[in-house]
Design a protein around this nucleic acid. Structure first.
Lengths: 220, 220
DNA sequence: GTCTATACCCTGATAGAC
DNA sequence: GTCTATCAGGGTATAGAC
């Protein structure tokens, strides 16, 4: 995994410390392009050009373009906590608001990208129709990690696990997000997404114990 | 629009009456292949082969492959009532149940196609990232027609229009369907779709006047 | 309107020197 | 591990006779 394990302390005149390896650059560029343009519409040549790499390098690290896609999906999965949840949840303690802070992140992304960027996993999930292969597994692992994180929030809500299944609710939140992103992108307008989030909020509301005097109740 | 307007009563030894024209066959095949494989993954050669047509014919009727896609989307739009809603609503009178009968149709499609077929519009909506073009317009018109139909059902529910916006609810139903289809296809399992539909039902429940003695109340 | 033939480009992937 | 050069095939679209 280290950049050049052959040499004792990196090659003399080697890449500056901290500079991403060719393999990393390929993965980073592929993540970005698959996200923005989709898998089929991104050519290997696009990736090579933007990563400043050669064909030989790519096929040295990855057997096929599809293997690169799997690598990208594994990066997304591993990045869910540090790259997606941590920024969205910074300064947000309440578990319910964490769910909606996560969704608000997608809304910001939609608007700031002029509706060009949605959920990278959702795009690929519908694009890849293939029946069996490792790609489906990698997609599933991403949806699972997202669902687990949201279910973890919901399970923290006092009394909720007794009233409803946090995992089923988390999947419903994922469905809401993915559907909302799809419509907002097509309409180039945030309101379908907002309607979807409002619907989810209304759906969760009766499951949350109303604690009117939130401040200062140390114990139940 | 008629098959051969040049001749008084079709060409002698022409195609049998009722046989679809070449243009129709191209559109029908393209609908099926774009649905099953997506737009990019369907080659013009695929369409020509399955339609039994020649390249010259396709480009006689359609300027580009994208123009064919627009033609396909217009067919979907025009087919929503006769091809989608009419079968789903046969024998279903209650407006709420019509909404869920429509969703049940997508579930059946998922299961019977072994999760290969979802919503044809939703697939294309995420695949086509292009910013401006007529394709986006055609996609939007499809979502609008679907939403209008569902909003029409919801507006029939006694007292609902006073309590909620039927169009916002209809869009929420569309979001639920599209997201549910996406997850069910990825998981190859109907339960994410079922969870989504259950969530929608729970969302609508408090908005529906409970009319315990439904039979025999002629007037309010 | 339909046919055959094909232009022309871009695709994913490979070869083999360095 | 990186480089250049390239293969073999498929992509969309066109030409022009019929």
């Amino acid at each position: 995994m280290s950049s050049s394990g052959t040499y004792p302390l990196d090659a003399p005149d080697g890449p500056e410390p901290g500079a991403p390896s060719t393999r990393d650059r390929l993965l980073q560029v592929a993540m970005r392009l698959f996200w923005a343009k989709g898998y089929q519409s991104t050519s290997v040549a696009d990736i090579l050009r933007e990563a400043g790499a050669n064909s030989g390098s790519l096929y040295h690290f990855f057997e096929t373009k599809q293997a690169l896609l799997v690598g990208v999906l594994e990066r997304y999965r591993d990045g869910i906590h540090p790259m997606l949840l941590a920024p969205a949840w910074a300064g947000v303690g309440d578990p319910v608001e964490r769910v909606f802070a996560l969704l608000a992140g997608y809304r910001t992304l939609l608007v700031e990208s002029d509706y060009r960027l949605g959920c990278p996993i959702g795009n690929l999930a519908l694009e890849i129709a293939e029946p069996d292969p490792p790609v489906r597994r990698a997609l599933k692992e991403n949806f699972e990690a997202w669902t687990d994180a949201v279910a973890g929030c919901l399970a923290e809500i006092p009394g909720l696990p007794e009233r409803a299944d946090p995992r089923a609710l988390a999947r419903f939140a994922l469905v809401t997000m993915e559907g909302g992103v799809m419509l907002a992108r097509t309409y180039r307008d945030p309101s379908p997404f907002d309607d979807a989030v409002a619907g989810l909020r209304a759906h969760l509301a009766p499951l949350i114990e109303t604690t009117p005097g939130l401040a200062g109740n140390g114990a139940e």
